[in-house]
């Protein structure tokens, strides 16, 4: 076993353990933290595959931004997870049965060709590159030439997601009290103050 193999098995095991932790932990914060660990292990695996740029992006975007936001949401919304898990045990047998049947069917259909496909010569070992090979540059080149249309459309989809989320959640609450400094400054004495002329009255 080479050092790379050792690393692969180490991080792969870590990934599986962390992934199991995500779905088994009772506390949602623990689940989220397990997911962070899973992302880290995954990015290590990607580095082993020479996909450095993707590995770094995974850590930066998912661990740095998405998961932090996720933790915020979990802590702020105080979702009652117990309530959501209530039906879990009840539906487990039927769910497991269906999953089992599905898996059995798939294996039954694909089974005979499975090993042949894996032994296919077309699945060659990926070409290894030197240390000065720029992954980022290659990705950028292909993203802005060959895949420019899907790339742009993916950005449009993100735009639609923003528009949809805002249009569904933004509310102007009419009852909210707020100040408008402009109006406050413009206020004249006569707007607020009413001088009432009264005759002097004698003390009884």
């Amino acid at each position: 076993m080479t050092f790379i193999d050792f690393n692969f098995y180490l991080f792969a095991t870590l990934l599986i353990v962390a992934a199991l932790g995500v779905i088994t932990a009772r506390n949602p914060v623990h689940s989220a933290l397990s997911l962070v660990l899973a992302f880290f292990a995954c990015s290590a695996l990607w580095i082993l595959l020479e996909a450095e740029f993707l590995a770094i992006v995974l850590v930066l975007v998912y661990v740095g931004a998405v998961m932090v936001l996720f933790l915020f949401v979990v802590m702020m919304l105080d979702i009652n997870i117990e309530q959501m898990r209530k039906g879990f045990v009840r539906y487990l047998p039927i769910g497991a049965l269906i999953a089992l049947i599905l898996a059995a069917q798939m294996i039954w259909v694909v089974g005979p060709v499975g090993p042949d496909v894996l032994a296919d010569d077309s699945l060659q070992q990926a070409v290894r590159h030197d240390a000065d090979y720029s992954n980022t540059k290659e990705l950028g080149r292909i993203l802005y030439t060959q895949y420019v249309l899907p790339f742009e459309i993916a950005s449009v989809i993100l735009l639609v997601a923003i528009v949809a989320a805002i249009s569904l959640t933004l509310r102007r609450r009419p009852k909210t009290k707020y100040q408008t400094p402009g109006k406050q400054i413009k206020v004249k004495r006569n707007d607020r103050l009413r001088i009432v002329k009264m005759d002097a009255e004698a003390k009884e």
Binding site: I153, I157, V160, A161, V163, A164, S167, L168
Partner: peptide, 9 residues
């Protein structure tokens, strides 16, 4: 997906 996301919203 572009179509579906718009329709969901």
């Amino acid at each position: 997906e572009l179509l579906s996301l718009c329709l969901y919203a």
